[in-house]
Nucleic acid binder design. Sequence first.
DNA 1: CTGAAAGCGCTTACAG
DNA 2: CTGAAAGCGCTTACAG
Lengths: 334, 334
Amino acid sequence: MTTINDVAKLAKVSNATVSHVINKTRKVNPETIEKVEWAIRELNYQPNAMARGLKTGNSKLIGVLNYYSVDVYFAEVLTSLEAAAHDAGYSVLLRHTERDCENQGDAISEWMNKNIDGLIINSPLIDDQFHDLIEKLNCPCVLLHVDDPLFKGDIIRGNDQDITEEAVNYLIGLGHERVACIAGITYDYHTAAQRRAGYEKALQGANIPINNEWFVSTEYGVDEGYQQCKSLMSLTNPPTAIFTYSDLLAIGAMRAVVDSGLHIPKDVSIIGFDDIQLAEYCIPRLTTIYQDKKRIGELAIELILKRIENPDVPPSQIILPMDLVVRESSGPLQ
Amino acid sequence: MTTINDVAKLAKVSNATVSHVINKTRKVNPETIEKVEWAIRELNYQPNAMARGLKTGNSKLIGVLNYYSVDVYFAEVLTSLEAAAHDAGYSVLLRHTERDCENQGDAISEWMNKNIDGLIINSPLIDDQFHDLIEKLNCPCVLLHVDDPLFKGDIIRGNDQDITEEAVNYLIGLGHERVACIAGITYDYHTAAQRRAGYEKALQGANIPINNEWFVSTEYGVDEGYQQCKSLMSLTNPPTAIFTYSDLLAIGAMRAVVDSGLHIPKDVSIIGFDDIQLAEYCIPRLTTIYQDKKRIGELAIELILKRIENPDVPPSQIILPMDLVVRESSGPLQ
DNA sequence: CTGAAAGCGCTTACAG
DNA sequence: CTGAAAGCGCTTACAG
């Protein structure tokens, strides 16, 4: 391995000068710069990130925690996030918690001694232990889709209540009165909790009594959507429309409707959440809620960088707009 | 930040002893061990990974490159890979190349000065520059789904030719003679290249002449599958069955068949590749090729660890079995 | 404009 | 069984 000292020797300068040339951290004679740059090329020198990190205290590592790997929704967030991180000179450490609190704790602890410079979390697993860990971790942290009053970092989320109300109102406008909801498990603080409020508000606004049989809660996943919808379809009084908390839940639900011998949207309307790429190609095409995944990824890095620069910036909550995208899986009551 | 010296001071021993207690790297008096462990707990001490890394030369970081983020196939590989890495004390750095050679090179260079201990690559982007980079990187490297004679590390792949031949034979057995293929872009060495051979071998074996109009090549993605299938359907002599190189391509293709006013599998049979979780929930359920994604992730880490331990182990090629999973998207010619 | 030297927090021969 | 000390490869006051 070639070190900064090899470069210094070859360029006949001190390693301090080499360091300053590389980091542009003080004025250096143009000729000296040239000599150093030549030596760097000659030796194909790459600074050692661990040595630099040890000295400066910055690892140039950003940790990303994601709740559930199969949910493609986050893949699109990750893409823009990675690009933004790379542009700023950071690498990203990824861990899927796979719905497991312990995995999440393990990952944060592991990253703590890796001295990560920032942490981005897309996971509803927020408990007391979590707050402790984040406190100890003591680095900029961005939470996605969460509205936690105890959290001292930055938050990016949407107005889940309003958009859900809008979506359910849209169903009611189509003539549906038997509107069910397949909810993802709703943890404290997670904005998914707001969706229930939006769902109920829409029904109440239309003077439709709330039927608890029609509100079911489950993990986010295709199979879970399938199972829950199967149960809904076998009720003596099944719903004619279903609002779900994710596109995966919706895709599973669509499959269950078809397996029950019914048609979408003639017999049952279905709405998803997130607008993953596949939504447009489903059969039938899925009506869903659009989220700006690219923007979420960019913003997350932006917020981390801002807080690295100035840790005392007051915490910000950024609320991103969402949109109801009407496709083929929803239609008038027949 | 609390350091090893703080612990040593509190436990009234040398930092060498603390280090040895932590790493179990020499015999220490049980009472001393207890004192040290007490001090560690007391101060809530975590060893600094960068300092350790600088000294030992091991970063405990494994880089993972993935070609295309939206392809859920890899999410399942990643999950088991992350768990295995974590169990062995490693963290994973992830970068999606998003089909871009430059991104791939950037990531490898970035990780080079991070001193990654291993690299796992799921990407067909293999050129001369790639071989140079890997050479320079000089750490254990595992390639997925590639069969590159120039590569000196370990390879995990399937027998893509045989399984493709089997799948196409299955279509022929159903009475199809007009069998098309929507191929993912086929890079040198990538096992996708073997699929073409399998496709052609099956046709030749049944004395079906090969029609070049029916073999189209495109990027791996839903939209690409859609576009290519649309074109196939508008040929004067359209195929009655389509073998595709990924489930995403197949899902796009199914959508295109339906949009052309045709039915699956009555008018057109479709086969995917990978068996992503969604395949079972598609409408109709997708016939596809199963790959053991969990095993791939575990094996990749296993191979890296083995090579870290002994870099001189001769390169291994592991060939994992695959299976044709027949569901609803394929059926007899009508 | 440049260099000598201390030090970041560990590990690991070396010595006893 | 334990400790004193060197050193991993950088950065950064300090001095000139």
